[in-house]
Design a protein around this nucleic acid. Structure first.
Lengths: 269, 269
DNA sequence: GCAGTGACATATGACATCGTACCTGTGACG
DNA sequence: CGTCACAGGTACGATGTCATATGTCACTGC
């Protein structure tokens, strides 16, 4: 149908920037754009829950792709819980409570649209609860080999204090090793799927300078020591203080009065 | 949600020639069978991580459906994180750490294949950590209306003590209201997506008799009272004791010595 | 007047066929 | 020995056709 713009009659030349509607970069699949746009329209509220999406034919016209791509894309969006396809009736946007909030595309769209950071606060609160619990479990775990990896991860961080990028990677690795020591694959998977988003979205308010890295290192040391001492309560408290403290120091604007759960309970345990 | 019937796996042997069984029930879509079977084959280990799925043409022949259905189904499986489709190279089974463990189909398949209940233990541990934390947050929340709903939910449970099915529904509703009072939509969504699976799987043991219901009621009352008293620590402890205790009483076989995280830490806080 | 029925429009479900793009191995060629 | 062209296998995408589910509405029969 409308594929001529990429049918390159003379071979080599790169696509000129003339094409406005279809970027169509080499290597990208058409469905990804369709899925992202539909997800964004739903999350941003352009398409309200209960309303119906345009029929497949209209979407084909709107996105300039074939019905094959539209069908697969809408099915993917359904898999994310954002719409419900009904044979003969159309496709309806579902209630937000049914959305798969851990899905990468959905999570990214929600965070990007999260004006007052309330969702990021919930995300940090969830991560705090899980990691604190897993740190406590790791402290009383009998898996000695896993604990050695925690110590190794801490040493790795210390050695990367001069390289911001590698330090950040070692930071994440330390957290992952703690979770691995707890043998809770489910909790580990959940945290890992939301970890990057939380970090990448906190605007690097307080840049990763040496003071921040040293503080991070100290807090990790506290977690490490509590785990090695087999002190579950101390491990949980240290991990909780580390995550909530780190978040409150980086959070762009101070909390308003919304019932954000992340930063308030640091002292209650 | 999607009503999924757990396809009874025909044991281990390879599909005999009699696979040409297209019951083709009115109203069922072809894709869900394909998705379920592929997911089951991966979770059960018939398809190992790193191995490649048969090409689309072969899958068409194997399942007796068109390439359209195969393409959509494999794409759905990819969305669940179980495979990675690569243009020109084929479809490979991914590492289990990348699986979306909260997906309905995946979760059901994993639990069905969870011989020593280790995954259910992790599931309960995760749920415990999240719900205990949310109960604590609810205790210090200023949302008065939400707290009234918790009290109402408790009364509803009390009134349904003579109806097992309705009591179970009221039970779940009470938990949901506590989570709602914490304003943590993410945590609530995570717990709700794993709640049914945990409950449904612990059924064959410890029938829901009146003694169990009364004990559940008492434990819920303790959670309720702690929240109303704005005592975060007590609320978390009560919720933790309730969930882990309920699980340990229902768990079919006693824990071995595997590092299961669910039942050990009841007393550490 | 009203319930049942059937035609019709509209929507998604499924199939078959064709061409394109991508990756990899292989062998000819310089 | 290295490089390039080509073939084979794979997934990607378009198109056309038919099947099936659903809602609407006029028509029919009581």
């Amino acid at each position: 149908m409308t594929r001529q713009f990429l049918a390159d009659p003379f071979g080599v030349p790169v696509a000129p920037a003339a094409e406005v509607a279809p970027p169509r970069v080499r290597g990208t699949k058409l469905g990804i754009n369709v899925v992202q746009q539909i997800v964004n329209d739903i999350v941003r509220g352009v398409l309200n829950p209960g309303s119906t999406l345009p029929p497949e034919a209209d979407l084909c016209d709107q996105f300039g792709v074939s019905r094959t791509v539209i069908r697969e894309s809408v099915k993917v969006v359904q898999e994310k819980g954002l719409v419900r396809i009904e044979h003969g009736r159309g496709t309806q946007v579902t209630d937000p409570r049914q959305w798969n909030l851990l899905d990468d595309v959905v999570l990214t769209a929600i965070i990007a649209h999260d004006a007052n950071l309330s969702f990021l606060d919930e995300l940090v609160a969830t991560r705090t609860a899980l990691e604190a619990d897993m740190a406590a479990t790791a402290a009383v775990s009998r898996a000695g080999e896993e604990k050695l990896r925690i110590s190794a991860a801490l040493e790795l961080m210390r050695s990367k204090i001069n390289n911001v990028a590698e330090f950040a990677a070692a930071d994440a690795h330390f957290h992952d090793m703690v979770m691995a020591a707890s043998s809770n694959r489910l909790g580990r998977a959940i945290v890992n799927s939301i970890h990057d988003k939380a970090r990448g979205s906190m605007r690097y308010h307080g840049e990763y300078n040496e003071a921040v890295m040293r503080r991070t290192l100290d807090e990790h040391q506290a977690v490490h020591d509590a785990i090695m001492a087999k002190n579950a309560e101390a491990a949980a408290a240290a991990m909780r203080a580390h995550i909530t403290g780190s978040w409150s120091r980086r959070r762009p604007v101070p909390e308003t009065d919304a019932p954000a759960a992340a930063t308030r309970r640091q002292a209650t345990r």
